[in-house]
Nucleic acid binder design. Structure first.
Length: 500
RNA sequence: GGCGCUAUCGUCUAGGGGUUAGGACACCAGAUUCUCAAUCUGGGAACACGGGUUCGAUUCCCGUUAGCGCUACCA
């Protein structure tokens, strides 16, 4: 049994689609499960589309996602180089061989000519495939026209027969040769075509399993033809189903969440995304387990339980999983991850010192159960950073607290006690609340609702038990957006509502 | 048009010739709570359709329908 080698071969477009991310993840899990190699290869033959910064971004996205590779453009390996743009020699060598063997030929047909034939075939209801006109050219004539400077592409001769393979996901799959036109190996501008470059690279890099999207199913026979012509043993193929958006169309840029970058910006934890994506099109097979660490994922992953049907991406379920992983995450890490979001809202500024970080841990702890994603954090902690008694008085939902007699009675009893108490902690707060209850006869909601509104300016939010220490501790910190203490809030409120 | 792939609750899925068709997200209800949540408990919810094969099909076969992909000198 040869060592298992798999690869992920994206083109650097500055955008890692979830579908590709999942393909990468499955390859990675498969490699890690078998102790094999995971190879990263950059498909950048098309010069216009590839820019250096795109590759950098691609590697960063994949690292953020949590994948690592054993061989790749940034770290080299035994089969370097790992960029297609740097493998021109290899491609040229085998084209020459193929032409020499008579398995490939030069094609001088112009794009216009091809397009016209295609349109005509379509109109006549025929299979639109290449006619094979240039097949008939003698090598001498081809050489003559080539020497005369006529641009030529190289095509592979498809031989009669059928192409079959045992797909590791779909089972036996077969295509008849007569539906396949002779595919382009090398374009007339000298760039190798995708179907040619992958085969050369996969073979040379000794890839044993090709795990990719099912949009490549119909490319497989073309590639098989190449393996045959070259006399090479093809790898195993496994084709993964498509990921669809909620509207059941293929997930694409126009969907809100479609790339790794999108998820990072949303504040989705990479481990949550990994777990969710692993479950989109695969299951551990026991019908029950859903939450799995990388170790479990790797231990349980197998090509046997991959779904054939397309899967709809469900943001709700990802959110649920993200909530789970946020709760599991070490508080300090989560606090650090939340910084960019808070900076964006102007609440904190970098660098964030240790005291502030500890305080942020408490903030996160209070806010977490209301969060699907870290991007929602600023809105959830707004009441910590932005308190304005005037707007409480004006607020549709909150103004009644300043107007209603019962509420005012509660606050008139409550506020002086708190102001007299100095710095407030929760036990002290409870004592005061209890004495206010005795004094006013109000309890439960009637008691706490006015206090909550006066203190936070909002009708809902985290428990007061958590908020009070956050206010008091936060007020001591030197933050970009200063946090008002309990006393400060109550003084402002009392003044605005003309209490006391 | 041709070729191909696919079809279990709204969604992700388990299952497989005889099951009360299982789990999760979402949804609904109750409990709890100062609020929103969170949490706990309970509930509704599926085998696309039509033919076969079979004592028996959701499961196997064929067709229909629908969705998706490919049909490029894109990857």
């Amino acid at each position: 049994m040869p060592d298992i080698r798999v690869r992920f071969a994206p083109s650097p477009t500055g955008y890692v689609h979830v579908g590709n991310a999942r393909t990468a993840l499955f390859n990675w899990l498969f490699a890690r499960h078998h102790g094999g190699a995971f190879v990263l290869r950059i498909e950048d033959t098309d010069v216009e589309r590839s820019e250096e910064r795109f590759e950098t971004q691609l590697l960063e996205d994949l690292k953020w996602f949590g994948l690592d590779w054993d061989e790749g453009p940034d770290k080299g390996g035994p089969f370097a180089p790992y960029r297609q743009s740097e493998r021109k020699e290899q491609y040229a060598r085998y084209v020459a061989q193929l032409v020499e063997q008579g398995n490939a030929y030069y094609c001088f047909c112009s794009a216009d000519q091809l397009e016209a034939e295609r349109a005509e075939a379509l109109k006549a209801g025929r299979q639109p495939k290449y006619s094979g006109r240039c097949r008939k050219l003698t090598p001498e004539e081809a050489a003559r026209r080539g020497a005369a400077g006529e641009p030529a592409a190289v095509r592979l001769k498809i031989v009669e027969g059928a192409f079959t393979w045992k797909d590791l996901v779909h089972g036996p799959t077969s295509f008849a040769s007569d539906v396949i036109g002779d595919p382009i190996l090398v374009r007339s501008d000298g760039h190798p075509a995708y179907n040619y470059a992958v085969v050369i690279d996969d073979h040379l890099m000794e890839i044993t399993h090709v795990i990719r999207g099912d949009d490549h199913i119909s490319n497989t026979p073309r590639q098989l033809a190449l393996y045959n012509a070259l006399g090479w043993e093809p790898p195993e193929f496994a084709h993964l189903s498509t990921i669809l958006g909620a509207d059941r169309s293929r997930l694409s840029k126009r969907h809100a969440a479609a790339s790794l970058e999108n998820f990072r910006e949303m504040g989705v934890l990479p481990e949550a995304l990994r777990n969710y994506l692993a479950l989109l099109g695969w299951s551990p097979g026991d019908g029950v387990t859903e939450i799995m660490s990388d170790q479990e994922l790797i231990a349980r992953f197998s090509l046997d339980h991959i779904t054939k049907a397309a899967a709809v991406f469900d943001q709700e379920k990802l959110n649920w999983m993200n909530r789970h992983y946020m709760k599991e995450s070490p508080p300090r890490r989560l606090a650090e991850l939340s910084i960019p979001f808070l900076v964006g809202a102007g609440y904190v500024a970098e660098p964030v010192d240790d005291a502030a970080l500890s305080w942020l841990e408490r903030v996160l702890d209070a806010a977490l159960k209301n969060l699907d994603q870290l991007s929602q954090l600023p809105a959830a902690v707004r009441l910590i950073f932005e308190y304005d008694a005037q707007s409480v008085l004006r607020g549709e939902e909150t103004r009644h607290v300043a107007e209603d007699a019962d509420s005012r009675a509660v606050l008139e009893a409550f506020i002086p006690k708190v102001l007299a108490a100095g710095e407030l902690d929760y036990p002290r707060f409870r004592e005061i609340a209890k004495s206010v209850q005795k004094e006013t006869g109000k309890k439960g909601k009637d008691l706490f609702h006015p206090i909550r509104v006066a203190l936070t300016g909002a009708v809902s939010g985290p428990e007061l038990e958590k908020l009070i220490p956050i206010f008091e501790e936060g007020a001591k910190l030197n933050l970009a957006c200063p946090v008002k203490s309990v006393a400060q809030r109550l003084r402002e409120f009392a003044a605005a509502a003309r209490l006391l």
